[in-house]
């Protein structure tokens, strides 16, 4: 005869915690818990349009970048080169000895050189900042399982990328453009309209320099934001991302040095230095009125370097889009 199954007693349902003062129990069957007054209610409000959500997300990302005193100290460091050059300009302009002040014929070169050096130093800072702070962002999201939280809500993956890029690019732009603009304004205050053949041409030069500075900052910021985020998704652990991005920049510098050592300073190897190539963007845009004064070769190197960054930007975009087509969803799955 077949044995019939015996039935063990049902599993006990865990007891609820005792009711706390100021709380109320919910009615209904087992199990019970004690909830704060108010309970659950359905949301009846309107949903905001998708574009507004993406803008809001970008703002949240941006505010996330500037959270913490150490980050703010780092960002304040971007002002140091501009402040240093501004002090230098002010001191030289106010020296009692006329022999030490900048002669009118050299003022333009003086202004451009200050801008170029300040921009170049800040670019170095930005690359370091991007390696340590910006590049790990997407991998950090993936490791924390946040990508799953974003994409399980009504948000397109492209929109996440747009918001990330907008926040990262805006921050990078501000870090580059604000110090350069301040330095430019100080120089404008010191030299006034006494740099051109007429007041009108001087005003034109200042506006041109301002526009060039802002444009080159924007292009450099976009290039750094794209490349940093793309480098970040190539590795799994957020802690290794700075090594990958920083290592890539350093490798380009070494490659440039080696090439120049082998074939001379005026070789195409100069364009391999990614930091110098980004500076080329500024020289092309802010100093284009002075091209006639530069050797043709330097202009070509700057052009080549800018082309290299454009290609890097395109490749970075492709990498990011491919990554987000099949992103790691879930904690620790980066």
């Amino acid at each position: 005869m077949r044995t019939l199954p015996a039935t063990p007693p049902p599993a006990p349902i865990p007891a609820a915690s005792p009711q706390q003062p100021g709380t109320q129990g919910i009615s209904g069957g087992q199990p019970k818990a004690f909830l704060r007054p108010g309970g659950f209610s359905l949301y009846q409000g309107e949903a905001v349009p998708q574009q507004q959500r993406v803008r809001r997300l970008a703002l949240i990302f941006l505010l996330d970048h500037v959270r913490g005193w150490w980050v703010r100290v780092q960002m304040a460091g971007f002002l140091l080169p501009a402040i240093g050059f501004a002090i230098y300009v002010l001191v030289r302009a106010n020296l009692p000895s006329a022999a030490l002040t900048v002669p009118k014929a050299e003022r333009m070169a003086h202004i451009l050189q200050n801008l170029r050096w300040s921009f170049s130093i800040d670019l170095g800072f930005l690359l370091l900042f991007a390696a340590s702070r910006l590049a790990p962002l997407i991998t950090r999201d993936a490791n924390a399982g946040a990508l799953l939280l974003y994409f399980s809500r009504p948000l397109q993956r492209d929109h996440y990328l747009v918001a990330r890029l907008a926040a990262t690019g805006t921050l990078a732009f501000a870090l580059l453009a604000v110090p350069q603009t301040l330095l430019l304004l100080v120089q404008m205050g010191v030299f006034g309209l006494d740099i051109g053949s007429s007041a009108g041409s001087a005003l034109g030069i200042w506006l041109y320099l301002l526009l060039g500075t802002l444009l080159s900052s924007a292009f450099a910021a976009a290039a750094v934001a794209l490349s940093a985020l793309a480098a970040g998704v190539l590795v799994r652990a957020p802690s290794t991302v700075p090594l990958v991005y920083g290592g890539g920049i350093l490798a380009s510098l070494v490659a440039s040095w080696v090439t120049q050592a082998a074939w001379g300073r005026d070789s195409l190897g100069r364009a391999l230095d990614l930091h110098n190539a980004l500076g080329g963007l500024q020289r092309l845009m802010a100093e284009s009125s002075q091209w006639a004064q530069y050797p043709d070769f330097a202009w070509h190197i700057d052009l080549l370097g800018s082309g290299l960054w454009l290609a890097l930007g395109a490749a970075s975009t492709a990498i990011l889009l491919k990554y987000l087509k099949n992103p790691p969803l879930g904690r620790g799955r980066a």
Binding site: R140, L148, L149, S152, R153, G330, R331
Partner: peptide, 16 residues
Amino acid sequence: RAKIGYMPEDDSLFPG
């Protein structure tokens, strides 16, 4: 997704 709430199995949170 606008009408769905999802609580994942993983210990997922927005970082920071």
